[in-house]
């Protein structure tokens, strides 16, 4: 067995694992309208940008112009919310045409979306609905992810979504569900560490044990974000700073994966670019802590 596939404890090989052959792009943020005019004076604070695919697929105007400028300055990766890979019907072909065109236009090294369904029966929910953790869902999603990746010509990453309800029919645990899908699809994993934390709070599991149960060698990108704690539930808002516990969980993850492309996601109450840079620095520091923990095992 390749020791890089070990999931109990820090990775034990002497070089950072190759993330499905993809480079570590460093630390980035999402390209958001709130920063269209200020990002450029802080370009040195970020190593790459992620775009919400749907925000740029259908539009010209300022968003498109800013994207072209960004693509000339940064590596760009795509992250979608409307693929609905777990929907009853296959992903919309018109959507895929525009998505593939955007991947080519910005020369994205990979693209991602969520392990969920976001539309069904011709209606878009514009939200991420959880799938049941079942063999039927694994078969459906893995087949579609494999085909999608082949058609796109670049790696596809599935993100572990936050979810607030677990169906009675879910026969499998979440980590097994994720593992089975990405391994059968031979695709990458976009590990959202904040989602792990939120789900652990909402469903009562140990987030560290969950991460150790994942196929960490397939983690090509990590998302970090803030959330909202309500009396009965924790909501994944992407509207607040990353809390220390999630930074610690991220360091724990990096100790096991080695350096991974990491993004700070912020979609609501978006702060200034200076705050984004400062928050990104906190993530860099947490990554350094994690790297230090794992260094003995993976540093040459």
């Amino acid at each position: 067995m390749d020791p890089s596939h070990a999931t109990t404890g820090p990775v034990s090989h002497r070089e950072p694992p190759r993330r499905l052959g993809q480079p570590n792009l460093g630390f980035g943020i999402g390209l958001r309208g709130a920063h269209f005019d200020t990002l450029w004076d802080h370009a040195e604070s970020f190593d790459f940008l992620e775009i919400l695919s749907e925000n740029f697929m259908a539009f010209g105007g300022k968003p498109r112009a800013m994207l072209e400028r960004a693509a000339a300055t940064f590596p760009i990766v795509l992250h979608g919310v409307s693929l609905s890979i777990g929907g009853v019907a296959p992903p919309d072909e018109g959507y895929l045409r525009e998505l593939f065109a955007l991947i080519r236009a910005v020369r994205a090294p990979w693209f991602s979306d969520h392990l969920c369904f976001s539309s069904n029966f011709g209606v878009e929910y514009h939200d991420l609905l959880p799938l049941p953790f079942t063999e039927e869902a694994i078969e459906l999603v893995a087949g579609r992810a494999r085909e999608l990746q082949e058609r796109a010509g670049v790696p596809f990453l599935l993100e572990n979504p936050s979810y607030y309800m677990r169906y009675a029919d879910s026969a499998l645990d979440e980590a097994t569900f994720l593992r089975e899908i990405v391994e059968r699809a031979d695709c990458g994993l976009l590990l959202d560490v904040n989602n792990v934390w939120v789900n652990a709070c909402n469903h009562g599991y140990d987030p560290r044990a969950f991460i150790e149960a994942l196929p960490l060698e397939r983690v090509v990108q990590i998302h970090m974000a803030g959330h909202l704690v309500l009396p009965d539930v924790v909501i994944d808002t992407h509207g607040a700073p990353v809390i220390d516990e999630v930074l610690d969980l991220y360091a724990f993850t990096i100790a096991r994966t080695g350096p991974v492309t990491t993004l700070l996601e912020w979609d609501h109450d978006i702060p200034t670019i200076e705050v984004m840079a400062a928050e990104t620095d906190k993530i860099r520091a947490a990554a350094a802590r994690g790297a230090e923990q794992g260094a003995a095992s993976w540093r040459p």
Binding site: E54, A58, S82, Y95, S119, G122, V123, E124, Y125, H126
Partner: peptide, 9 residues
């Protein structure tokens, strides 16, 4: 019902 994947639509 929303029919398009782009929210503004």
């Amino acid at each position: 019902p929303a029919r398009h994947w782009e929210l503004n639509a």
